[in-house]
Amino acid sequence: MSETKQQLAALTEMRALMERSSRFLSLSGLSGVWAGLCALTGAAVVYLYLGMRPLSSAPISYYEQAVRTLRWGMSYKTFFLVTALAVLVLALAGGLFFTNRKARRQGHKTWDASSRRMLIAMAVPLFTGGIFSLALLHWDLPALVAPATLVFYGLALVNASKFTLHDVEYLGLSEIALGLAGMFFLGFGLELWAAGFGILHIAYGSWMYMKYER
C-alpha cells in the first residue's frame, strides 16, 4: 500500500507543478481590497469636484454637470485625467506591495514567467480601453467614459484569469456586466463605476484573501 501512497504523492506534486508553472498564484486578495479603496476615494473626490451626491435626484446628470464645472482651477477633462491617473498609480503601487509580500511568504518570485504572461494578457485590452476612453473625452463624450473603462477592465481580467487564480474571471465578468448596464443607464455611470472598481474589488479581494491566505 505504501507504493500506492507514493504514487498518489507523486500525482499531487505533479499537479502542483503544473499549476505553479503556468499560473501566477501569488496574486494577493489584499491587492484587490486596496485597489477598491483607492477607487472609492477617487469616486468621492469626483463627487466633491462636481458638487454632487451619489444616487441624488439632481435635475441634471453628472456628465452634464461636468461639462460646466471649473473647480480647483481645472476643467473637467484635466480633472478626470489627473484623478484617474492618481487612482491607477496608487492602486498599482499598493497592489504590488501586497502581492510582493504574499510571494515572499510563499517563497516564490513576484517577477517570473507566469506573472509576465499574466501582465501581457492584461495589457492589450487595458491599453486599448485607455486609448478608447481618451478618444471619448477628446470628442466630448464624457458620459461613455465610466462604462467603457468598466467593460475594458473586465475584458482585461477575463483574459488575465487564464494565467492566474480562476476567481479573477468572475470578477472580470461582473465588471463587464456593470459596464454594459452603464452603457444604457448613463445617469448612473459614476455609481456603477464606484460599484465595479470600488465595491467589487473589495468584495472579491476579501473573499480571495479568506480563501487562499488565511
Binding site: 499537479r15 503544473m18 508553472s21 503556468s22
Partner: peptide, 11 residues
Amino acid sequence: RLGIMSILVVN
C-alpha cells in the same frame, strides 16, 4: 523527471 514533464506539458 515527472516534475520536468509536468511543467513542460502545460508550457
